[in-house]
Structure formats: structure tokens, C-alpha cells
Amino acid sequence: MSAGHDVLPDPGVLPLPGAAATSLGMADRITEAILRNELSLVFQPQADVATGRLCGFEALVRWRLADGTEIPPDLFVPVAEASDAIFVLGEWVLRRACSTAARWLRTGMADVPVAVNVSARQLAEPGLARCVLGILAETGLPASNLKLELTETALLDGSAAVTQCLLELRGAGVQAVLDDFGTGYSSLALLRRVPLEGVKIDRQFVQAMVEQRDSAAIVHAVVSLAHALGLRVVAEGVETRDQLLFLRAYGCDRIQGYLLSRPLAEADVPGFIREIGAPPTAG
């Protein structure tokens, strides 16, 4: 579960006041927020670099209080990840994302995968694969329409049990993607050891590559390395045409960021799909 890096600060978004902002109080309120229907998902589109067509969404969680105040994900997601609230929150996000994507598929809107972030603590749980497959069966979403986005920290913390979990999910059709690639210290080893479908280049390199030769070299090298290993590459935080031109020249597969779209409320997704174009559903 990540906070969602492609969201700019909003002057109307305020932290919880006083003692409610403490870790314990926040963790308790996250669970309560689910019961009160204060949480929702927004969907960050991804597009194919070569064709410009929609090829997926990343689901990001948002929290709005009854009075309209938004709790920034950078505030509540880390608290959840440090407490048992992450298990309740993570399962809620996964179920809601799968249910929404299944509805898009049933109504013929589009046949594209939805990506859901999974934290280190979730990945370390022995029952994660069973939970994911159970939610897919419950919602009717094909396994191929779900991707799990994992941080390097999550993979490093899990050892052989994590690899086995990901192998089980891949065997069922669920793919895993390494998020924020290039920001850790053991990424090359992970690419060899862990069953992954792709990597996401961290936004800090993407946004600096036009002005900084070293960032451009890193992006180019990541794309080349990933392709040599048979992995797809998604660039995060793409905001300008120049960045897109660089990524196209380097052979990057997909982009995500404000150049394409801000994260969309569910109600805004159909109009976006009509505008950009998406693969039709089978049949």
C-alpha cells in the first residue's frame, strides 16, 4: 500500500487535528473510516508509450471526513503500514479495486488491469496469496486483470516465503511489479530472484532526466536492463512532453503521471476511457 506519489498537495487537504494525529489514534480511525464509508479509491491511468492507448490503472486510496476534510495519504498510509490497520486497509483496497475493475469488464467499458500496492507487512503474511485469490473469486475479476505493486523493502523483508507467495499468485495469473525501482540497494539481485512482470522507474529520475545527464543515463540503463530480463517498464511521474520524448527514445513501455492524467474518481473514468481509447473487452 503506497500513498500515491502522483498527487500534488491540495490547499483543501488538512491533517487530523490534535491528538487524533498520533499514530495510535490514527490507526484506530483508519479502521473506523472503513466502517463509516469515508474511504474511496482514485485511479491513476497508465498508457502505452508507442500508441498512447490506455493500458491500465493504479488504484490509490483516499480518505475524506464527513465535513469534507481530506486526510493526506502521506499521513495515514505510513501509520497503517506500521500497525495492524494495514491488514484491514489493504484488504479493503484490494476488494474495492477488484470489484470496480470487474464491473468495468462486465459492462464492456474496457479490459485493462488494475494495480494495487501491497506493503511489506501484507506480503509477509502467510495467507496473502489465499486472500488475493479469494477476493478475485468473490468479485469475478480475472487474475490477469490484477497486478500487485511491491516495494523493494517488502521483497527484502520476506525471504523464500515471499518468493513462494508470488510464484503461487503468478501461477494463477496475477502479476507483480517492483515499484520505485532505482531507489534501493539490491534491485539487481531482486530482479533475478523474484518473479516479476515489470518495474516502475521512480519519479525522481524521470522528472530530472531532461536537465540532468546522470538521471537520463539511469533511466536509459533501467529500461535496457529490464528489457534484457524480459520485464516491462513503467515510468512514474511523467509531467512534460520532453520527458515523454526521452522515454520514447529509450524504449520505455508505459507512462503514468500528470501528462496523461491526474488520479481519477471512479465516476470520471468512463469519460477518460472514451477520450483516450482502451482495449475493448473480449466478446
Rank of each mutant, 00 (worst) to 15 (best):
residue 7 V to M: 05
residue 13 V to M: 10
residue 19 A to C: 05
residue 22 T to M: 06
residue 23 S to F: 06
residue 26 M to P: 00
residue 26 M to W: 08
residue 27 A to Y: 09
residue 29 R to T: 07
residue 32 E to G: 10
residue 40 S to Q: 09
residue 47 A to W: 02
residue 49 V to F: 08
residue 52 G to M: 02
residue 56 G to Y: 03
residue 57 F to N: 00
residue 58 E to F: 00
residue 60 L to M: 03
residue 61 V to R: 01
residue 63 W to A: 03
residue 65 L to G: 07
residue 68 G to L: 00
residue 74 D to K: 13
residue 76 F to E: 06
residue 78 P to S: 10
residue 95 R to M: 07
residue 95 R to Y: 03
residue 96 R to I: 09
residue 98 C to Y: 04
residue 101 A to Y: 03
residue 102 A to L: 06
residue 103 R to K: 06
residue 107 T to E: 15
residue 113 P to E: 07
residue 114 V to M: 03
residue 124 A to L: 09
residue 126 P to F: 10
residue 127 G to F: 01
residue 128 L to H: 13
residue 129 A to L: 12
residue 134 G to V: 03
residue 136 L to Y: 04
residue 144 S to Y: 10
residue 145 N to H: 15
residue 158 G to S: 14
residue 158 G to N: 12
residue 158 G to W: 01
residue 161 A to H: 09
residue 171 G to L: 10
residue 173 G to I: 08
residue 174 V to T: 08
residue 177 V to G: 00
residue 178 L to Y: 01
residue 179 D to G: 06
residue 182 G to V: 11
residue 184 G to K: 09
residue 188 L to P: 01
residue 189 A to E: 13
residue 192 R to V: 04
residue 194 V to Q: 04
residue 202 D to E: 07
residue 203 R to L: 10
residue 203 R to S: 04
residue 205 F to E: 01
residue 207 Q to C: 04
residue 208 A to H: 03
residue 212 Q to A: 14
residue 214 D to Y: 08
residue 218 I to E: 02
residue 225 L to I: 15
residue 227 H to P: 00
residue 230 G to M: 11
residue 231 L to C: 10
residue 237 G to A: 05
residue 240 T to F: 05
residue 242 D to L: 10
residue 242 D to R: 14
residue 243 Q to V: 00
residue 246 F to W: 09
residue 247 L to I: 12
residue 251 G to C: 12
residue 252 C to R: 12
residue 262 R to Q: 04
residue 264 L to T: 00
residue 278 A to G: 03
residue 278 A to S: 01
residue 279 P to N: 02
residue 279 P to Q: 06
residue 283 G to N: 14
